[in-house]
């Protein structure tokens, strides 16, 4: 159960960077009014960010990953989150086992 100093400093840097991003939005809205088109733009950020995170997995990793992403997205239209995620994980495991 040791903690390396360089590792600890790296973890603290990550924690500081993350806390900064999480708090600065609150500070921002105290000083900037968010009405009309600005609010619309803010509302588009969640899908834009989430898509950017998953796009390389969905479209540029392999056939198994692309198909499993499609299965997950399709399942999410009707099924609860946990079931959709489980289906996605099962599909990717099966497709990889098939050699895709």
């Amino acid at each position: 159960m040791t903690v390396d100093l360089a590792t600890l400093i790296a973890i603290l840097a990550m924690a500081a960077a993350t806390a900064l991003t999480r708090l600065s939005g609150l500070v921002l809205i105290r000083h900037v009014s968010l009405e009309g088109s600005r609010r619309k733009a803010i509302e588009s950020i969640p899908p834009a960010v989430l898509m950017a995170v998953v796009a390389p997995t969905a479209f540029a990793t392999g056939i198994a990953e692309t198909l499993a992403c499609a299965v997950t997205a399709f399942a999410a239209l009707r099924l609860p989150m946990l079931v959709s995620v489980a289906l996605g994980v099962a599909s990717v495991a099966i497709l990889r086992a098939l050699g895709l």
Binding site: D4, A6, T7, I9, A10, L12, A13, M14, A16, A17, T18, L20, T21, R22, L23, S24, G25, L26, L28, I29, L34, I42, E43, I45, P46, V49
Partner: peptide
């Protein structure tokens, strides 16, 4: 050994979305 600058900057970049998430939820 871990590079705190590289790791810290990557965390900032990956989590920059939180600025907008916290502005929205705020």
């Amino acid at each position: 050994p871990a590079s705190w600058t590289g790791i810290g900057f990557a965390a900032l970049l990956v989590n920059i979305r939180h600025v907008l998430m916290s502005a929205s939820l705020g």
